[in-house]
Amino acid sequence: MTSARLKRLYLVAAPGSELAARDSATAFSKRVATDQAVDTQLDATLAAHVDSVYRYALRITGNVEQAEELTQETMLRGWRNRRSLKDPTVAKSWLLRIATNLWTDEIRRSQRRPHQLIEPSTIPNPNPKSTPEQQESARQALAALDQLPPRQRQVMHLITIEQLSHAEVAKVLAITAAAVKANLAAARKTLRTQLKDVYKEHQGNKT
């Protein structure tokens, strides 16, 4: 072979492959994409929790880009270690534990402090079915959650949003049950205080 210089890179999709489908379909809805993912590569048990992992990643990193990276790393590591997951019913907390460990390592490595401030973009699109008042309450509640100290924020998120049990949270964060309880109580108290006016408004609107 002569000193062949790389000229052009073609990616050839086999007819009917996932790649071909991805490129040909213009209106490729998210759900379809995720369903395909479930069918094709990533074990369905793990893929089912990608949203939970992402939400958690977003809450602890406070940054969309980092959250996406952390989610990918978590799913990949989960996939690589999938044989060590004996009980599929604990897949969600198992993945969240991986995400926690990866993020802890990342913070240690980069010597960076966990984000205290959340980018405005991380506050999700409000539920279109809710009223503007409800949307505003939701926005304020999430903003208050994101202002909590990291540990309280993690505990509150895992229990309230991901509905993990106290024991599961203790495992995910590698802390004691007592620490979970203490952080949860502190987080709730702070949030109730901060959102007192929002709550009063909500009650006023109700009557």
Partner: peptide, 30 residues
């Protein structure tokens, strides 16, 4: 208030989902 707040956070918090290309990247690597 706590019951209201828990419900509010749960409803608002679970709206967020991962963008499809997050899994695509994972798929590629797998």
């Amino acid at each position: 208030q706590q019951a209201w707040l828990d419900q509010l956070l749960h409803d608002a918090g679970t709206i967020t989902t991962a963008a499809p290309d997050v899994l695509w990247e994972v798929e590629d690597q797998i």
